[in-house]
């Protein structure tokens, strides 16, 4: 499974060149403005805006769509339940099941809003190296301990994914096949226990290795952030678009 969100961070685009601190703040404001939108016509336009941003960022569309694919499955229960349970004016009647207008509108607007917001998040984290983006969060006054935790966890996820893959291969070679019986749950629980124990054994060694390298709990960054006028200009454009969306929402 590919978890690298920053696979395309080496492309050259306006979003890639943008100072991460400004990028985070501006895109966060844009995301909030997306979440405020309620009017149906405005909801239809925000995915277009998000797609324009993807084009500018030059992130491959297949990469963005592939990342969104899994999310869509999570929306399925909401998409089925909302139109048939919201109440109000009936929009359509299929084999005795009432489909309500409010629910259908709500489901579509939640879906479109979510997709647009997720695309924005992908642009925020996909157009710079992940560690650089996280360091930018540190410069935005997020507590140091949390930043260190995020960076460490991110690093070790890759290692434990590899561990899990090896354990799964071992299970496969021993003829284990996942079914819905108690034995299968027992094996899965051992798998989790195994992962935790391996990681616990590693913690002490990793910690000692870090002490030897001079770790004192401080975040030492090799990245320097330097904002130029263009960075500020880009931020102003995005914040202006966000305010425009909120303004239109109030007017409509």
């Amino acid at each position: 499974m590919h978890i690298d969100i920053d696979r395309f961070s080496n492309i050259n685009s306006q979003f890639h060149k943008w100072d991460e601190r400004y990028k985070i703040i501006s895109i966060l404001i844009l995301i909030i403005s997306f979440s405020v939108v309620k009017s149906f016509y405005l909801v239809l336009t925000i995915p277009i805006l998000a797609l324009i941003m993807v084009t500018i960022s030059r992130l491959p569309l297949y990469f963005v769509l592939k990342k969104l694919k899994l999310t869509l499955i999570f929306f399925l229960p909401l998409f089925i339940l909302l139109p048939i349970s919201s109440g109000g004016e009936i929009f359509y009647l299929i084999v005795g099941i009432k489909i309500y207008k409010i629910g259908l509108h709500l489901a579509i607007s939640i879906f479109l809003k979510a997709i647009s917001i997720l695309i924005c998040i992908m642009i925020m984290f996909g157009t710079s190296r992940f560690d650089r983006t996280i360091k930018a969060f540190y410069h935005l006054k997020i507590p140091e301990k949390l930043i260190i935790m995020i960076l460490f966890t991110y690093r070790y996820i890759y290692i434990y994914m590899e561990n899990l893959r090896k354990l799964n291969v071992a299970l496969f070679l021993q003829g284990f096949k996942k079914t819905s019986n108690l034995r299968s749950i027992l094996v899965s629980s051992s798998l989790i226990g195994n992962l935790l124990i391996r990681c616990y054994d590693q913690t002490e060694m990793v910690y000692n290795a870090m002490i030897l390298r001079g770790f004192n709990g401080k975040l030492i960054s090799q990245f320097r952030f330097k904002a130029s006028k263009t960075d500020l200009f880009k931020a102003i454009i995005i914040i202006f678009i966000s305010l425009l969306i909120v303004g239109l929402e109030i007017i409509i």
Partner: peptide
């Protein structure tokens, strides 16, 4: 902090284990 992060990573990966 490093120790907690490592265990967090292990838990993160454990959530990928699906139960049928």
């Amino acid at each position: 902090v490093p120790k907690i992060s490592l265990v967090t990573a292990a838990f993160f990966v454990s959530t990928f284990i699906h139960i049928k």
